[in-house]
Design a protein around this nucleic acid. Structure first.
Lengths: 210, 210
DNA sequence: AGTAAAAGAATGAATGTTCATTCCGCCTGC
DNA sequence: GCAGGCGGAATGAACATTCATTCTTTTACT
């Protein structure tokens, strides 16, 4: 039902998600998506009451159902839009010609930038990864991202620049380290300075390099 | 199935620490804890109805409240028991005399063994890490584990055998990689053979070594 | 342009459902 | 036969969703 508006939502992310508290300018649908992103991330899907989403969005409880069929449809729209946006921004315009070592660096920096720029979305995607209420389409998008990741490490394996291991293992280690790092910095364990980010990137490459 | 191992462990813990005298009560209490572990892990805290826990445990709905004050008390007991058990089994009897590199190997193997032997507990602790309904005591136990982790990497730093970085960063990368690896193998991405586990351990050490 | 009617959007109290928790009668072991 | 653990229907609160109504925008006609 809302699939056709996905593109507009992504546009909204880039334009508005950076500027907080612009409820006046945002449409109702976007206000709802923004409120739901925050509450689902902070309190989980089942822990968030729809009237609370409505209140934070500054709309009536019934208004949500003018834009989304159900609570499940809302969380799936949110997941689909943000996951698509994440995959797009991370993969976009990485030159295939440069060495894979440099591509790795680019991917790493983009992952970190995404988590820093959109901390709520990062937390949301992390929390709702593989959740039982995600539908087939959401899973398919998840799968797309996974394939891109595995494809990169398969390229690395072909060039014999990484340890001879299943690409899924290499991906799991690097992405796990990334998530662990972002969560720890969000928890206040350390400042995510450029120096730390670069050091962590070096760590991750040395973890997998041949 | 390995659920019986989990049951025995929890039974052991409850017998020793929580209900020293009443073996008959421990039976029902244990069933409830086991059912709750499974359901909370699969469906989340808010997504799990208490009558469902009772049904899976094979007890009446009211019986749960003879052993636990509330749903929150139940999830906190579960968290405390398993987190304590996890920390204990991973830290126990690691000789302080052997090189830190070998200690790292021991810790790694124990972490993997824990996740393989008690997959539900691993998922539970991962999912409920830092959840808002965990109380001060549960947080304190969480903190204890964190301090042990940081302490180890501080020792490594003192011996200058790891990269000169905040110990929290080193811990976040290694533990993140560990969690990522366990989740991926549980998702069916690859078989967790001894070879893969050893390879991953080598990856993690090379990530942080000087 | 001005106005009235129609259409569309938004609302929030109302609805039926599900939940955590309680309570009371049953049953078991002594 | 009775004390107390136990089950599961009962309870009231909280929830997702609905819908009759109100408010806003567009259209149609003069």
């Amino acid at each position: 039902m809302n699939g056709s508006l996905a593109t507009e939502s992504i546009y909204f992310m880039t334009k508005v998600a950076l500027l907080p508290d612009t409820n006046e300018l945002a449409g109702k649908r976007d206000s709802i998506l923004r409120a739901a992103l925050q509450l689902f991330t902070e309190r989980g899907f089942h822990g968030t009451a729809m009237p609370l989403v409505a209140e934070l969005a500054g709309v009536g409880a019934g208004t949500i159902y003018r834009y989304f069929e159900s609570k499940e449809a809302l969380v799936n729209t949110l997941y689909r839009d943000w996951k698509t946006f994440q995959i797009t921004t991370i993969l976009k315009d990485v030159p295939a010609a440069i060495p894979l070592r440099e591509q790795f660096q680019m991917y790493w920096n983009r992952l970190v930038e995404f988590a820093c720029e959109f901390p709520l979305a990062f937390g949301f995607l992390e929390l709702h990864f593989h959740a039982p209420y995600l539908d087939a389409e959401s899973r398919a998008i998840e799968e797309r991202g996974h394939h891109a990741l595995i494809g990169f490490f398969q390229n690395c394996l072909r060039q014999q620049i990484v340890k001879d291991s299943p690409p899924e293992m290499l991906g799991a280690i690097v992405m796990g380290a990334y998530v662990g790092l972002m969560k720890a910095s969000r928890a206040g364990c350390f400042e995510l300075s450029k120096e730390i980010v670069d050091k962590a990137e070096a760590c991750c490459w040395e973890a997998i390099r041949r």
